[in-house]
């Protein structure tokens, strides 16, 4: 650190300290979700109400399973970033904001991992 000036250390990092990282993550996951959401949608809509055996067969196919896993990963990462933006915009109390941000991160990770785990269990 002592080789950097204070200005150089802060430049481009903004008040949150991580610069455009959030912005880029939001865009990269958004681009990924354009095809993934559409590919996830139709097998899922067809599987709804089609019976347990049919659902196990549908997600036993590697393509459907991989799409569902990639969709859950990208969607919950994107959701976490989006909800984070909503929280910092509307919640002004510092304690409440910090608590909600932590809950948001943990809940999105938990749900995303749960969804992925479920698809893996079905596919294997």
């Amino acid at each position: 650190m002592r080789f950097l000036t204070d200005r150089k250390r802060a430049a481009g990092l903004g008040s949150a300290g991580d610069g455009v990282h959030h912005w880029w993550q939001q865009r990269v996951t958004a681009v990924a979700l354009v095809p993934l959401a559409l590919l996830f949608l139709f097998p899922f809509a067809r599987a709804l109400g089609s019976g347990h055996e049919a659902v196990l067969a549908a997600y036993g196919k590697p393509f459907n399973a991989i799409v569902a896993i990639a969709f859950f990963a990208a969607a919950f990462a994107h959701l976490r970033l989006g909800l984070q933006e909503v929280i910092v915009d509307y919640v002004s109390s510092h304690g409440m904001r910090a608590a909600l941000l932590v809950v948001n991160t943990l809940a999105c990770w938990l749900l995303g991992l749960a969804g992925i785990f479920a698809v893996v269990l079905i596919a294997l």
Binding site: Y59, G82, V86
Partner: peptide
């Protein structure tokens, strides 16, 4: 924003459905 937050709610149902199938 509203549709983004609302889909977060719908995602709960979808994950529950997959967990139930598993």
């Amino acid at each position: 924003r509203i549709t983004g937050v609302a889909m977060g709610g719908a995602a709960l149902l979808v994950v529950w459905w997959f967990l139930a199938a598993a």
